[in-house]
Design a binder for these strands. Structure first.
Lengths: 253, 253
DNA sequence: CGCCATATTGAGAATGATCAATGCCGGTGG
DNA sequence: CCACCGGCATTGATCATTCTCAATATGGCG
């Protein structure tokens, strides 16, 4: 299931895959591993959804091409993610490798049969689907009302939470996707993404050790990055009060 | 399941509820109907997700309040939709009635037990979840790269597809949600929504029979509305070619 | 009748898009 | 070895869409 990223509280990636009973990872383990080179396609939007996939290694992008030719990357996929659980006839999006990647594939019928027969597997598919829904909604919130800076900071943080093991704060993080990928995921142009990176570097929130390695970020101020991401969840009490009306606007900065 | 709207090809609302076997609607039929008055809350973001719901009548809004107080309406719910299938511990959003509404509720445990025991029900939950995912992705595309006019036209069309029975083109359509609701769903301000309505009226794409009844739209030019929605799906061949690169940009008009 | 919530309209500001030029690096081939 | 080229990224100048702030309708309801 894709889009498991970001929702720490719901993330089952670490817990589920080490279950004593049947688990999705061991189900897929019977399938041969396949390697994808960077930018290689896995399937196209509109293709018959004949397989479901597990990502073992690398990063993939999941995207749609809209009528005027622009691309919307709805998600990036990381090791431990699955693709195609909540599909039926055809793929609703295309999938490509961002980095060289390793995946396993399983025929959909076989997958459905295995899941139908096993309670544990169903629970894990359900959990993955819940994470995917939560992450998709988080992305909707980002696109609906965040500024360019908030979008980029949110994205960097989400990416970090996916690539770093269980929570410790890495000093540097590799952002393997291109600026264009980032732009198409955040609903911005490549120029705006580039300018926003520059702004964050000037603020010394992040830095590039080596200007040549534009994909290797050093996080200088984790707290600042979190603050600028703008998902401070400090309004639980406001929500509960119900009556307090401060809706509307896009509230840019 | 919410967000079943819009994806006509995947919509199972009409087919599933008249199954010969067990179906979700009959499962919920054992529960008493409850009535909600306009703007009445069903549950709040963060509450324990103790129930799942079926919408029998009326329209509901599903939303989150973000840290700076703005509201993001992630979906509207219509008769035949269900709420809370893909949740576990807590609700990730709040739900309120837009119009007076009728719903049934079922304890989550009871629901899960019933679904676990019945293959037909599982298939229907799966189908609803697929529709929800598809609609959420459609909304992500809208938010990522559509102009105000495209957003509003898309929204009017989606709404029409939910409220009109099986496909015929109604001359008029009731849009029961406020301009603020529309704005918060489309990632716009109320002023932009209002201006865009005016623009569509000036173009005679839509009209108001009675200026007093701002919620009762007459669709003057269905084709124009569809065109302006900008989801013309005329690029299937481009997608398949793969190599053709014309990504980037937000391509406003 | 007056008040309130909702909606519309206007003027100005701002964020981000667009268009265009430049920089940087890695590979290729003379 | 170096010059050239292509892809990617950055930067600059200008423009446009949409936001913001403000004022003004409009209708429902006590």
């Amino acid at each position: 299931m894709f889009l498991t990223d970001y929702i720490g509280a719901l993330d089952t990636r670490n817990s589920m895959n080490v279950n004593e009973g049947n688990c999705l990872h061991t189900l897929f383990a019977k399938q041969p591993a396949e390697h994808l080179s960077a930018s290689q396609s896995l399937f196209f939007e509109g293709d018959d959804a004949n397989h479901v996939y597990e990502v073992l290694d690398g990063v993939l992008r999941v995207f749609r091409i809209v009528s005027d030719g622009r691309r919307v990357i709805t998600a990036f996929l990381y090791p431990g993610d699955f693709i195609g659980f909540s599909l039926r006839e055809t793929y609703l999006y295309s999938a490509e490798a961002v980095t060289p990647a390793t995946i396993r594939r399983m025929p959909r019928r076989q997958f459905e049969t295995a899941v139908a027969a096993d309670e544990d597997l169903r629970a894990q598919v359900f959990a993955k689907t819940c994470c995917e829904m939560a992450a998709t909604q988080e992305q909707m919130v980002l696109l609906a009302c965040k500024s360019a800076e908030e979008r980029l900071c949110s994205f960097i943080r989400r990416h970090m939470q996916r690539v770093t093991m269980s929570g410790e704060r890495a000093a540097t993080v590799d952002l393997p996707m291109s600026r264009q990928d980032v732009a198409d995921h955040l609903g911005l142009t490549i120029e705006t993404v580039s300018r926003t990176f520059t702004k964050l570097i000037n603020k010394n929130v992040i830095s590039l050790d080596n200007p040549a390695a534009r994909h290797l970020l050093r996080i200088e101020k984790h707290g600042m990055l979190e603050f600028l991401a703008g998902d401070n969840d400090d309004c639980a009490e406001i929500r509960q009060q119900g009556g307090l009306v401060m809706y509307g606007g896009r509230g840019r900065h």
